[in-house]
């Protein structure tokens, strides 16, 4: 019970201090809006092309929303030493880090549904399998957030967190099948795609929105969950090694 009180209050504080701040709300709305408009105009097609680009835009919104927020906020608190206060609290490190990441997961998930709301006004989304899409988005948000955590633990400065995040994020836009199908990628790049968690998330979203998944959905879910677990455990290990000296 005591752990949950701490968990809930850390989450609440982060949501109030970071995620509900006007610049972040505007970022969360404008960023997906800009991506949607950009890809829609670029496609040169009518509104009927929206479902084809929707999974990609959702994926980018989650990826950028979660990784940038988490890695920056954690690095910021670490630098200001307020993170020490959390490490000194008698709560297990797992609970602490889940509390710190939950805000980013919620923020990323909310970001993902901004393009969905926009698309709902422009095209027919009745064919979307929400039972697949919703957990897929949440899992993408979890894996991206844990990737952000992994980055946050690896760096010391806020600007390093941003730079290091981009090192992962930009290749993922092109390698994970968000906009370019994997079979159109050069053969030598394809193995790289399969070691990136977003590939499986993008496949799930393609399955849910366009019924065009390449892999069995259960396999996508299982691999994505495995990535989440792996990134979280690796981050915890690094925190124990680097922050609890």
């Amino acid at each position: 019970m005591k752990g949950w009180i701490a968990f809930w209050n850390i989450l609440l504080k982060d949501v109030r201090s970071y995620y509900l701040k006007p610049p972040n709300i505007s970022w969360g709305l404008l960023f997906p809006l800009a991506w949607t408009a950009m890809f829609f105009i670029r496609s040169g097609l009518g509104f009927e092309s929206i479902p084809a680009i929707l999974p990609g835009v959702m994926g980018i919104s989650v990826l950028f929303g979660t990784t940038s927020m988490l890695s920056v906020t954690v690095t910021f608190e670490k630098k200001g030493r307020s993170f020490e206060r959390l490490l000194l609290a008698p709560i297990p490190l797992e609970v602490l880090m889940l509390a710190k990441t939950s805000g980013a997961i919620l923020f990323g998930t909310a970001n993902a549904f901004v393009p969905v709301v926009i698309a709902a006004f422009l095209t027919d989304l009745s064919g979307v399998d929400w039972a697949i899409l919703t957990p897929a988005v949440v899992l993408i948000a979890v894996s991206s957030t844990f990737l952000g955590l992994f980055i946050a633990v690896a760096v010391k400065e806020v600007f390093e967190a941003q730079t290091f995040s981009n090192f992962f994020r930009f290749p993922m836009i092109f390698l994970c099948g968000l906009f370019i199908p994997l079979d159109r990628l050069p053969v030598f790049l394809r193995p790289l795609s399969y070691v990136l968690p977003l590939t499986y998330g993008a496949d799930l979203m393609q399955g849910a929105v366009n019924h065009a998944a390449r892999l069995p959905l259960f396999l996508d879910f299982a691999l994505l969950a495995l990535f989440c677990l792996g990134l979280f455990l690796a981050s915890l290990r690094n925190i124990r090694r680097k922050w609890i000296l």
């Binding site: 005591k2 009180i5 701490a6 850390i10 206060r85 959390l86 609290a89 008698p90």
Partner: peptide, 8 residues
């Protein structure tokens, strides 16, 4: 907030 960290 600090009290909450100790489960108060």
């Amino acid at each position: 907030f600090c009290g909450a960290l100790y489960g108060m």
